[in-house]
Protein backbone atom coordinates (compact mmCIF):
# COMPACT_ATOMS: atom_id res chain seq x y z
CA UNK A 1 0.00 0.00 0.00
CA UNK A 2 1.49 3.28 -1.14
CA UNK A 3 1.66 6.24 1.19
CA UNK A 4 -0.29 8.57 -1.11
CA UNK A 5 -2.87 6.90 -3.33
CA UNK A 6 -4.72 8.88 -5.97
CA UNK A 7 -7.44 6.66 -7.33
CA UNK A 8 -9.47 7.46 -10.48
CA UNK A 9 -9.87 11.12 -9.56
CA UNK A 10 -12.29 13.21 -11.60
CA UNK A 11 -12.50 16.96 -11.32
CA UNK A 12 -14.64 19.40 -13.31
CA UNK A 13 -15.16 23.12 -13.26
CA UNK A 14 -18.78 23.36 -14.36
CA UNK A 15 -18.99 21.32 -17.56
CA UNK A 16 -15.26 21.50 -18.19
CA UNK A 17 -13.68 18.23 -17.08
CA UNK A 18 -10.10 18.96 -16.08
CA UNK A 19 -9.07 15.62 -14.52
CA UNK A 20 -10.44 12.57 -16.28
CA UNK A 21 -9.71 9.70 -13.95
CA UNK A 22 -6.17 10.17 -12.71
CA UNK A 23 -4.55 7.36 -10.73
CA UNK A 24 -1.15 7.69 -9.15
CA UNK A 25 0.71 6.17 -6.20
CA UNK A 26 3.53 7.78 -4.28
CA UNK A 27 5.50 5.53 -1.93
CA UNK A 28 7.08 6.74 1.29
CA UNK A 29 10.32 8.65 0.66
CA UNK A 30 9.58 8.64 -3.04
CA UNK A 31 9.72 11.70 -5.30
CA UNK A 32 7.25 11.74 -8.19
CA UNK A 33 7.35 14.36 -10.94
CA UNK A 34 4.38 15.52 -12.98
CA UNK A 35 5.11 16.96 -16.39
CA UNK A 36 2.68 18.14 -19.01
CA UNK A 37 1.66 21.08 -21.12
CA UNK A 38 0.10 24.19 -19.68
CA UNK A 39 -3.54 23.51 -18.88
CA UNK A 40 -3.08 19.74 -18.66
CA UNK A 41 -4.22 19.77 -15.03
CA UNK A 42 -1.01 19.56 -12.96
CA UNK A 43 -1.94 22.36 -10.57
CA UNK A 44 -5.48 21.10 -10.32
CA UNK A 45 -4.30 17.62 -9.32
CA UNK A 46 -2.02 18.99 -6.61
CA UNK A 47 -4.77 21.27 -5.31
CA UNK A 48 -7.12 18.28 -5.11
CA UNK A 49 -4.64 16.32 -2.99
CA UNK A 50 -4.56 19.26 -0.58
CA UNK A 51 -8.38 19.47 -0.71
CA UNK A 52 -8.23 23.04 -1.95
CA UNK A 53 -10.52 21.72 -4.68
CA UNK A 54 -13.42 19.34 -4.24
CA UNK A 55 -13.34 16.27 -6.49
CA UNK A 56 -16.33 14.85 -8.32
CA UNK A 57 -15.23 11.23 -8.49
CA UNK A 58 -12.60 8.83 -7.25
CA UNK A 59 -10.73 8.82 -3.97
CA UNK A 60 -7.49 10.01 -2.43
CA UNK A 61 -5.91 8.09 0.46
CA UNK A 62 -3.02 9.08 2.66
CA UNK A 63 -1.44 6.31 4.70
CA UNK A 64 -4.51 4.20 3.99
CA UNK A 65 -6.91 6.86 5.28
CA UNK A 66 -9.48 8.27 2.88
CA UNK A 67 -9.13 12.05 2.79
CA UNK A 68 -11.77 12.91 0.20
CA UNK A 69 -15.53 13.08 0.48
CA UNK A 70 -17.83 14.28 3.25
CA UNK A 71 -16.82 14.33 6.91
CA UNK A 72 -13.05 14.49 6.45
CA UNK A 73 -11.21 16.81 8.82
CA UNK A 74 -9.63 19.05 6.21
CA UNK A 75 -7.56 21.01 8.68
CA UNK A 76 -6.03 17.79 9.99
CA UNK A 77 -5.36 16.56 6.45
CA UNK A 78 -3.62 19.79 5.54
CA UNK A 79 -1.34 19.46 8.54
CA UNK A 80 0.04 16.32 6.90
CA UNK A 81 0.19 17.71 3.37
CA UNK A 82 2.24 20.83 2.62
CA UNK A 83 1.94 22.71 -0.66
CA UNK A 84 4.15 25.34 -2.27
CA UNK A 85 2.71 27.43 -5.07
CA UNK A 86 4.23 28.75 -8.26
CA UNK A 87 3.48 32.33 -7.15
CA UNK A 88 4.88 31.94 -3.57
CA UNK A 89 1.71 33.45 -1.96
CA UNK A 90 3.50 34.73 1.12
CA UNK A 91 1.37 36.90 3.41
CA UNK A 92 2.48 40.44 2.53
CA UNK A 93 1.40 41.99 5.85
CA UNK A 94 3.62 39.68 7.90
CA UNK A 95 7.38 39.50 8.21
CA UNK A 96 9.23 36.42 6.98
CA UNK A 97 9.39 35.07 10.52
CA UNK A 98 5.69 35.69 11.14
CA UNK A 99 4.84 33.96 7.87
CA UNK A 100 6.69 30.87 9.03
CA UNK A 101 5.41 30.94 12.63
CA UNK A 102 1.73 31.54 11.84
CA UNK A 103 0.57 27.98 11.24
CA UNK A 104 2.68 26.24 13.93
CA UNK A 105 1.26 28.63 16.53
CA UNK A 106 -2.34 28.84 15.34
CA UNK A 107 -2.87 25.36 13.98
CA UNK A 108 -0.40 23.07 15.72
CA UNK A 109 -0.55 24.96 19.02
CA UNK A 110 3.22 25.22 19.38
CA UNK A 111 4.38 27.72 22.02
CA UNK A 112 5.62 31.01 20.63
CA UNK A 113 9.22 30.69 21.75
CA UNK A 114 9.57 27.19 20.42
CA UNK A 115 7.89 28.14 17.13
CA UNK A 116 10.32 31.01 16.73
CA UNK A 117 13.30 28.79 17.41
CA UNK A 118 12.15 26.20 14.90
CA UNK A 119 11.37 28.86 12.32
CA UNK A 120 14.82 30.39 12.69
CA UNK A 121 16.49 26.99 12.31
CA UNK A 122 14.50 26.30 9.15
CA UNK A 123 15.22 29.77 7.76
CA UNK A 124 18.90 29.26 8.45
CA UNK A 125 18.82 25.96 6.58
CA UNK A 126 17.78 27.83 3.42
CA UNK A 127 20.09 30.79 4.04
CA UNK A 128 17.28 33.19 4.93
CA UNK A 129 18.00 33.78 8.62
CA UNK A 130 19.14 37.37 7.98
CA UNK A 131 15.80 38.22 6.43
CA UNK A 132 13.60 37.07 9.31
CA UNK A 133 12.39 40.60 10.03
CA UNK A 134 11.95 41.62 6.37
CA UNK A 135 8.63 41.83 4.62
CA UNK A 136 8.04 39.72 1.51
CA UNK A 137 7.91 42.70 -0.87
CA UNK A 138 11.58 43.36 -0.09
CA UNK A 139 12.69 39.90 -1.20
CA UNK A 140 13.61 38.57 -4.61
CA UNK A 141 11.44 35.87 -6.15
CA UNK A 142 13.93 33.16 -5.23
CA UNK A 143 14.11 34.35 -1.64
CA UNK A 144 10.33 34.47 -1.41
CA UNK A 145 10.06 30.95 -2.74
CA UNK A 146 12.61 29.70 -0.20
CA UNK A 147 10.52 31.27 2.57
CA UNK A 148 7.37 29.70 1.12
CA UNK A 149 9.04 26.27 1.24
CA UNK A 150 10.09 26.84 4.83
CA UNK A 151 6.60 28.02 5.73
CA UNK A 152 5.19 24.71 4.49
CA UNK A 153 7.96 22.68 6.15
CA UNK A 154 7.32 24.35 9.51
CA UNK A 155 4.16 22.26 9.83
CA UNK A 156 6.29 19.12 9.48
CA UNK A 157 4.15 17.68 6.70
CA UNK A 158 4.43 14.00 5.79
CA UNK A 159 4.18 14.78 2.09
CA UNK A 160 5.01 17.94 0.15
CA UNK A 161 3.34 19.11 -3.04
CA UNK A 162 5.39 21.52 -5.13
CA UNK A 163 3.64 23.24 -8.01
CA UNK A 164 6.17 24.51 -10.56
CA UNK A 165 7.94 26.35 -7.81
CA UNK A 166 10.74 27.56 -10.08
CA UNK A 167 8.58 28.55 -13.06
CA UNK A 168 8.28 32.21 -12.03
CA UNK A 169 11.97 32.60 -11.18
CA UNK A 170 14.83 34.12 -13.15
CA UNK A 171 17.18 31.37 -14.37
CA UNK A 172 19.99 32.27 -11.97
CA UNK A 173 17.64 31.95 -8.97
CA UNK A 174 16.34 28.52 -9.96
CA UNK A 175 19.46 26.71 -8.76
CA UNK A 176 19.16 27.84 -5.12
CA UNK A 177 15.57 26.71 -4.85
CA UNK A 178 16.21 23.37 -6.56
CA UNK A 179 19.13 22.76 -4.21
CA UNK A 180 16.74 22.98 -1.29
CA UNK A 181 14.32 20.54 -2.87
CA UNK A 182 17.22 18.20 -3.62
CA UNK A 183 18.21 18.23 0.04
CA UNK A 184 14.63 17.51 1.08
CA UNK A 185 14.54 14.58 -1.33
CA UNK A 186 17.83 13.25 0.00
CA UNK A 187 16.46 13.64 3.50
CA UNK A 188 13.68 11.23 2.58
CA UNK A 189 10.70 13.58 2.36
CA UNK A 190 7.84 12.22 0.24
CA UNK A 191 7.16 14.65 -2.59
CA UNK A 192 4.86 15.07 -5.55
CA UNK A 193 5.97 17.89 -7.78
CA UNK A 194 5.00 19.52 -11.01
CA UNK A 195 8.08 20.74 -12.81
CA UNK A 196 9.54 21.47 -16.19
CA UNK A 197 13.11 21.20 -14.97
CA UNK A 198 13.85 17.93 -16.73
CA UNK A 199 17.46 17.72 -15.62
CA UNK A 200 16.37 18.08 -12.05
CA UNK A 201 13.59 15.53 -12.49
CA UNK A 202 16.10 13.00 -13.84
CA UNK A 203 18.20 13.50 -10.79
CA UNK A 204 15.62 13.24 -7.99
CA UNK A 205 12.52 11.55 -9.38
CA UNK A 206 11.94 7.84 -9.08
CA UNK A 207 8.88 8.20 -11.26
CA UNK A 208 7.84 10.71 -13.92
CA UNK A 209 4.22 11.03 -15.08
CA UNK A 210 3.22 12.77 -18.27
CA UNK A 211 -0.16 14.40 -17.80
CA UNK A 212 -2.01 15.17 -21.00
CA UNK A 213 -5.43 16.74 -21.17
CA UNK A 214 -6.52 15.51 -17.76
CA UNK A 215 -5.16 11.98 -17.71
CA UNK A 216 -1.79 10.36 -17.23
CA UNK A 217 -0.71 9.28 -20.67
CA UNK A 218 2.63 7.76 -19.84
CA UNK A 219 4.66 7.02 -16.74
CA UNK A 220 8.03 5.52 -15.97
CA UNK A 221 11.48 6.36 -14.75
CA UNK A 222 12.95 9.68 -15.79
CA UNK A 223 15.27 7.92 -18.29
CA UNK A 224 12.37 6.10 -19.90
CA UNK A 225 10.15 9.15 -20.26
CA UNK A 226 12.79 11.62 -21.34
CA UNK A 227 14.91 9.36 -23.55
CA UNK A 228 12.52 6.78 -24.97
CA UNK A 229 8.99 8.19 -24.73
CA UNK A 230 6.50 5.72 -26.23
CA UNK A 231 3.60 8.05 -26.87
CA UNK A 232 3.63 10.50 -29.73
CA UNK A 233 2.14 13.25 -27.54
CA UNK A 234 4.93 12.82 -25.04
CA UNK A 235 7.52 13.07 -27.80
CA UNK A 236 5.89 16.25 -29.14
CA UNK A 237 5.75 17.80 -25.69
CA UNK A 238 9.37 16.95 -24.91
CA UNK A 239 10.63 18.30 -28.23
CA UNK A 240 8.81 21.58 -27.55
CA UNK A 241 10.39 21.77 -24.12
CA UNK A 242 13.82 21.04 -25.56
CA UNK A 243 13.37 23.75 -28.17
CA UNK A 244 12.51 26.29 -25.48
CA UNK A 245 15.84 25.43 -23.85
CA UNK A 246 14.58 23.80 -20.67
CA UNK A 247 16.43 20.51 -21.00
Amino acid sequence: MAFLEIDEVHKSYGHHEVLKGVSLNVERHEVVCLIGASGSGKSTLLRCVNALEEIQGGEIRIDGDTVTGAGVDLNALRRDVGIVFQSYNLFPHMSVLENVMLAPIRVAGVAKGEARERAMTLLASVGMQDYAKSYPDRLSGGQQQRVAIVRALAMQPRVMLLDEITAALDPELVGDVLEIVRELANGGLTMLLATHEMGFAKEVASQVCFLDNGSILERGTAEQIFEQPREERTQQFLSRVVKSGRL
Partner: peptide, 12 residues
Protein backbone atom coordinates in the same frame (compact mmCIF):
# COMPACT_ATOMS: atom_id res chain seq x y z
CA UNK B 1 -4.36 32.71 -3.60
CA UNK B 2 -3.91 34.29 -0.16
CA UNK B 3 -6.86 32.36 1.14
CA UNK B 4 -5.60 29.18 -0.55
CA UNK B 5 -2.18 29.61 1.05
CA UNK B 6 -3.70 30.05 4.49
CA UNK B 7 -6.08 27.12 4.15
CA UNK B 8 -3.30 24.89 2.83
CA UNK B 9 -1.39 25.49 6.05
CA UNK B 10 -4.37 24.15 7.97
CA UNK B 11 -5.89 27.43 9.13
CA UNK B 12 -9.66 27.27 9.48
Amino acid sequence: SQSAAARSLGLS
